Simulated assay, not measured.
Amino acid sequence: MMQWEGISEFVYVAENESFTLASKKMAISTAQVSRQISALEKRLNIKLFYRTTRKVSLTEEGRIFYQHCRSVLDGLDAAERAITNLQSKPQGKIKLTAPVTYGEKQILPLVNNFLKQYSDVEVSAYLSNQRVDLVEDGYDLAIRLGNLSDSSMMAKKLGERSNFVCASPLYLHKHGIPHSISELNKHSCLLGTNNYWHFRESDKEKSVRITGRLRYNSGYSLTDAALKGLGIVQLPDYYVKQHLQSGELVTLLDNYRAPDEGIWAIYPQNRHLSPKIRLLVDYLVAHLS
């Protein structure tokens, strides 16, 4: 750190040919400027200025030293401008991960819109329903759904998703409408990877084990089965919303609907949230909340 002490004072004095003017421009006392210059000359073991009562001028050694110091300060100014530009105009790579279907349907289309606005940003996305290790695998950001269990990560809530129990009018016409959770065991239920459906009953969250003759690990395929009258399904809103609006599917057991689940952006605690990441997260919040 001592190598930097007195450098700015030296350059200001050299350029203004005055200790007093240098002190005013630096907003410090003349005595402080003088002390820093004296200490610098002592450390370098050279005389940097000729001093008279009327004028301050550089020695030959001082002129050589000034040229190098001016280049160093110019470089520091350029570095500061580069960081400022980086903050005002995001650039660089973002590596993110998200669940497969939600990533395909909700996240990546928004990322594409984000990239249209910020042409200097690059994105590498890996979609997986498996939890990846953000730190070990070098991810800047992950999108997670539901309850968060990893307390070692920082989290920002992007929005919420709703889960709907629904069926087609065709199925309900043939098999009737269930009015309670207990009636589900009398119906054909369409299963995903989870054996349990989630509800709220008497202000308490409740998980109910479901059985059925059809099991897919694809939300789109389960939606198609429900549309074709094969049974009742519980799926997130982004699978069934348009079909509920068109009347192709009908919601059931609305009084037992589970609380909405959080949609989260998470990132490592020890990783600085760079401007490009912060801007992308804010963009997702604005369009998902």
Rank of each mutant, 00 (worst) to 15 (best):
R63S: 13
I64H: 10
H68M: 14
C69K: 07
R70Y: 01
V72A: 12
V72S: 01
L76D: 06
D77R: 15
D77A: 14
A78W: 07
A79S: 12
A79V: 14
R81Y: 09
R81L: 11
I83P: 02
T84Y: 11
N85A: 06
Q87C: 15
S88F: 08
S88N: 13
S88A: 13
S88D: 03
P90I: 04
K93M: 13
I94E: 01
K95C: 04
L96Q: 05
V100F: 09
Q106M: 04
Q106H: 08
L108R: 05
L108M: 13
P109Q: 01
P109R: 02
P109A: 00
L110P: 01
N113K: 14
Y118M: 03
Y118H: 14
S119F: 04
E122T: 15
V123M: 03
V123D: 06
L127M: 02
S128R: 03
S128P: 02
N129E: 08
Q130A: 12
R131H: 08
R131Y: 07
V132N: 07
D133T: 10
V135D: 05
G138L: 11
G138M: 12
Y139K: 05
D140W: 05
G146Y: 05
G146L: 04
N147Y: 09
L148F: 01
L148M: 12
D150N: 14
S152C: 02
M154A: 13
M154Y: 12
A155W: 01
G159F: 05
G159E: 04
G159Y: 07
R161G: 00
R161Y: 08
S162H: 06
S162Q: 08
N163Y: 10
N163T: 08
N163M: 03
C166E: 03
S168N: 00
L170R: 03
K174V: 09
K174N: 08
H175G: 03
